[in-house]
């Protein structure tokens, strides 16, 4: 800015409005805005509230029927039961078995799919080869095929490979189905990075992996977080593939939860069901809360350049 300051004498200002425009605190538009926001928030939070209070009540209290009432006698028994000893079918070991199964599926699934998709996206964005456009189109086409159509062929495929009903099988399935959207994500992110950076690195003698690992990776944290969140929530929340491909010894948490909640024998233990459901949903929620800001940044970086 210029260092010449305008020094107008105060009295030279006329009587009219001056300075910042005043804002009314309770303007009708403000009230409208906040009411809509509050109602929307309540609409989404109410079921969560019901779940939390129900999970903290004992069964006698629940039977009184007032689902919105806060718990009179707070008990963590349902949570312990849900985790440790709720019955899923024949076994009564709680949902912890499913939790560890889900961890065993999610961790390798997320790592493998992101590792492959990021290299895919990098290659498609920067190392165009003959037919790369067609390859990308076919890959994207995969994103639009309903999963259910592919279930049976995949079952046969995995059976022939000898990995049906194994951890390897389910991880492979998640990797395949994550590939279209993840590759698109990474490709767009890398394509938005300045191409001159890539050229400079090539002039500097860096090859395919050097450019990827030393130049691109350190610049790509936001998009990796996006991929991480998408895959963690996607794989953790998956039910269909888990029930079909994992095999009963590897059933993920969602399948176990279903078995607890839909048990037909005995009394419905609503508090245990609520606790088990909350436990199942905790992991994606945790991941989102920890890295949500980066998530938004990564999504935005792909959409808007600069």
């Amino acid at each position: 800015m210029s260092d010449i300051t305008m020094t107008l004498p105060e009295r030279s200002l006329s009587a009219g409005p001056r300075g910042a425009k005043p804002r009314r605190r309770f303007a009708p538009s403000t009230i409208m805005l906040y009411s809509v926001l509050i109602i929307a928030a309540l609409y989404y939070l109410l079921p969560l509230y019901v779940m939390v209070v129900t999970s903290l009540k004992g069964m006698p209290e629940i039977r009184m029927g007032n689902i919105f009432a806060p718990p009179v006698d707070i008990t963590f028994e349902p949570w312990i039961t849900a985790w440790d000893s709720a019955c899923t079918g024949l076994y009564c070991e709680g949902i912890k078995v499913g939790f560890w199964n889900s961890v065993k599926i999610t961790v390798p699934g997320v790592i493998v799919s992101i590792a492959i998709a990021s290299v895919n996206g990098y290659a498609l964005a920067n190392w165009r080869f003959k037919g790369s456009e067609i390859f990308f189109t076919i890959l994207l086409f995969g994103a639009f095929i309903p999963y259910q159509v592919l279930l049976y062929p995949l079952v046969i495929l995995l059976r022939e490979l000898g990995i049906f009903s194994t951890l390897t099988g389910i991880v492979l399935v998640h990797t395949i189905f994550g590939m279209p959207i993840l590759t698109l994500l990474f490709r767009n992110y890398f394509a938005a990075l300045p191409v001159e950076l890539f050229k400079a690195a090539r002039v500097d003698g860096a090859g395919f992996w050097q450019i990827f690992l030393q130049i691109y990776l350190p610049m790509s944290l936001p998009i990796f977080v996006v991929g991480l969140i998408l895959q963690v929530t996607g794989i953790w929340n998956d039910f269909l593939f888990g029930v079909v491909f994992a095999g009963s010894q590897n059933y993920p948490m969602t399948v176990q939860l279903n078995n607890i909640v839909n048990a037909v024998q005995g009394v419905k233990q609503y508090n245990v069901n609520m606790a088990a459901t909350l436990l199942t949903g905790a992991v994606p929620l945790f991941v989102y809360f920890v890295s949500g800001r980066l998530f938004v940044r990564g999504i935005a970086a792909g959409a808007v350049k600069g």
């Binding site: 300045p194 001159e196 950076l197 050229k199 400079a200 002039v203 030393q214």
Partner: peptide, 20 residues
Amino acid sequence: KEPKDRGIGMVFQSYALYPQ
């Protein structure tokens, strides 16, 4: 030949410095 084997150095409009 590959760029690195041509005995050239290049300076770009956007500087293209490695940011990290």
